[in-house]
């Protein structure tokens, strides 16, 4: 590695696996940024976290059976989304503001999550010689993405974004004001379930780049940062996608040039983006309140 940035990037792009990783990263980031933004608006982070964890036993089981991790990710995440959509009162329990709410509902979810991870561990330990792949499944890798995988990710991503666009208006309506949406004839229950399935597909796709345990970073960090910058949905959605793209591509590049895996870089950049956005918000809130009164308090300072 030289210190010529242009040459370094050229050298990186000469590797086919790196091209595939970047292609997959772009697809996954756009989908995760968009779906994650709606997830944060709907306060369904807990469901997103559960879905991303469920992908791990799916992938491990599929690898054990020789099917390929990808099908396990998609199968388990979509099935998990349907199960969560079928549980009574999930929406309230997951989105009551304080995380997971109180009482035994989150304890049940925690039990299911721990059991899912334990199943994944069982499958991994049954599949001998796969223990080195365990880290890739859990924490992501940039070296293992095949051409076929990129195509499937592209197809799944296009499908998800199209469905999100089609759902768009009624989904926003049902998200921001469920009661009035239901009263004016929007099929809220159906839309909620449909959205959870989209979230499952997004989580499954993202898992293949960032690993099961760190999907959450790409779903929640860009969206949370975007909501700190703007309250307008269209601008927030674009910003969320932009931030997701930035941290994914930066993370993959950093993972290429350093020994540390992509999961570490993406979570670190994501958390940094979120902290910056929060600081920006705090600063504007403070000065936004002071500006009208500031000239009156110190007229000399204003005119100097």
């Amino acid at each position: 590695m030289s210190w010529n940035l242009f040459e370094d990037l050229q050298q990186m792009l000469r590797f086919h696996f790196m091209l595939n990783a970047l292609r997959a990263g772009i697809i996954v980031a756009v989908v995760a940024g968009a779906i994650g933004y709606v997830m944060v608006l709907r306060r369904e982070s807990f469901a997103g976290h559960t879905l991303s964890v469920i992908g791990f036993p799916g992938a491990a089981g599929a690898t054990w059976l020789g099917l390929g991790a990808m099908w396990g990710f998609f199968g388990f995440c979509i099935a998990g989304a349907l199960v969560i959509a079928g549980l009574p009162g999930t929406r309230r329990a997951g989105g009551s503001g304080d995380v997971g709410g109180a009482g035994e509902q989150p304890a049940g979810v925690g039990t299911v999550q721990a059991f899912a991870l334990a199943c994944g561990f069982l499958f991994v330990s049954r599949y001998h010689g796969f223990l080195s792949g365990l880290n890739d499944l859990l924490f992501g890798t940039i070296t293992g993405i095949t051409d076929a995988q990129v195509l499937v990710l592209l197809a799944a991503g296009t499908l998800t974004l199209t469905a999100l666009l089609l759902l768009g208006r009624p989904l926003m309506f049902a998200t921001l004001d469920p009661e009035i949406a239901a009263a004016s004839g929007v099929p809220v229950r159906l839309i909620n379930s449909g959205y959870l399935v989209l979230l499952g597909i997004a989580a499954a796709g993202t898992s293949q780049v960032t690993g099961s345990l760190l999907v959450f970073a790409l779903l929640v960090a860009p969206a949370a940062a975007a909501t700190r910058f703007t309250a307008r949905p269209a601008a927030g959605l674009s910003l969320s996608i932009g931030i997701a793209l930035l941290i994914t591509l930066a993370g993959e590049t950093a993972a290429f040039f350093t020994p540390f895996p992509i999961g570490f870089w993406v979570t670190t950049f994501g958390f940094a983006a979120f902290l910056l956005a929060s600081a920006y918000r705090a600063a504007t809130d403070r000065f936004g309140q002071r500006w009208p009164s500031a000239p009156a308090l110190s007229p000399a300072g204003g005119r100097r």
């Binding site: 970073a217 999961g263 979570t267």
Partner: peptide, 18 residues
């Protein structure tokens, strides 16, 4: 109160573990 903050911090702590 802020589940988004906790979620972000959680992911990052795990990233640190990696």
């Amino acid at each position: 109160a802020d589940d988004v903050l906790i979620g972000n911090a959680m992911a990052w702590v795990l990233g640190l573990g990696v």
